[in-house]
Computed example of a mutant assay.
Amino acid sequence: MYLFKKGLVIIFGSIFIALGINMFLVPYEILDGGVIGIGLILNYLWGFKTGATIIFFSIPIFVIAWFKYREYFYNSLHGMIISSFFIDLLKPFSTIVVFDSVPSAIVGGSMVGIGIGFMLRYRTSTGGTDLIAQFISAKTGVNVGINIFVIDSLVLVVGGLLLSMDSFLLSIMTILSVAMTTSLIARKTMSKPISKESVVH
């Protein structure tokens, strides 16, 4: 039953993330942080498929996870693949403009945060640069949260330089919305330890 619920949550969270990105971020070339942000930058500049790009850039991260953080590998691989699939599948929704740019940045970020938050409650995620942050923390002792902030900031700065100042400022709003919504939704993360049956291989 737990695995069934976890599967539904991954699909539910992935759809929220995909709709948040395609309906609210893409129309105004707004970025998210991490690997998703890299995928969006390449999509805006050269038309690469965002989901496929996320999978491509996640490969070395998951190779590291296989050797260094095996539990992370098992609990994030499915979320990364399924969310990337839905991001590309729901790409046609990017032609729908619902709000102006500022509300779009906030609503889109909130939807991404809802998707990530619910996935975290079932000990899964979309993977991404948080593993790199953990790896850097293990080597340097620097707080993981600081590392994630620095990595996301670098993605936004590069995106802002390559795209526009508007994209940069709107993306800051999105990142803050993602962070606040994720924290709110994931606050009651399940405390039950992961059993062998709970880990999806």
Rank of each mutant, 00 (worst) to 15 (best):
G39W: 02
R123D: 15
L45W: 04
F56L: 14
G108M: 05
F67S: 02
L90F: 14
S171N: 05
E197G: 00
F99T: 11
N75R: 14
V26A: 10
A133D: 00
S177H: 01
V157K: 05
I64Y: 05
H78W: 14
S94P: 01
H78K: 05
D130Q: 11
K5N: 14
I11Q: 06
D130A: 12
G127I: 01
G79F: 01
I106C: 07
L131Q: 09
M173L: 14
F149Q: 08
F56H: 05
L8V: 15
S195D: 08
I146V: 13
P27Q: 09
S76Q: 02
S84Y: 02
T174Y: 00
S110E: 02
Y69W: 13
D100G: 15
T174W: 00
L170R: 00
F4E: 03
L77E: 05
M165N: 09
I185W: 03
W66K: 14
I21V: 14
L45A: 11
L161Y: 12
F62M: 02
L45P: 09
A18T: 05
F118H: 07
T189Q: 13
V150N: 01
G141F: 06
M180N: 07
S101Q: 13
V155F: 03
F48I: 07
I41L: 11
L161V: 07
L170I: 01
S76K: 00
F16N: 03
I17Y: 04
G145V: 00
T126W: 10
T124G: 10
I55G: 04
I81F: 15
I41A: 01
S164F: 04
K91W: 09
L161M: 15
G127E: 00
S153N: 06
F56N: 02
S167E: 14
I185K: 01
S104H: 11
I64N: 03
G7T: 01
I55H: 05
P103E: 02
K196A: 15
F4D: 00
D152C: 02
V107Q: 07
F85R: 09
I59N: 14
M180T: 15
I148T: 04
H201M: 13
I15L: 11
D130T: 11
A186N: 13
A18M: 10
K192T: 13
I55S: 01
G127H: 03
I151C: 05
F118G: 08
R123Y: 09
A18K: 11
P60N: 06
L19P: 02
L3A: 07
L8N: 11
I30H: 03
V150D: 00
S191Q: 12
Y122D: 04
Y74F: 11
S58C: 12
P103L: 10
G47F: 04
L169Q: 03
W66L: 13
K6A: 05
V199T: 06
S191M: 15
S177P: 04
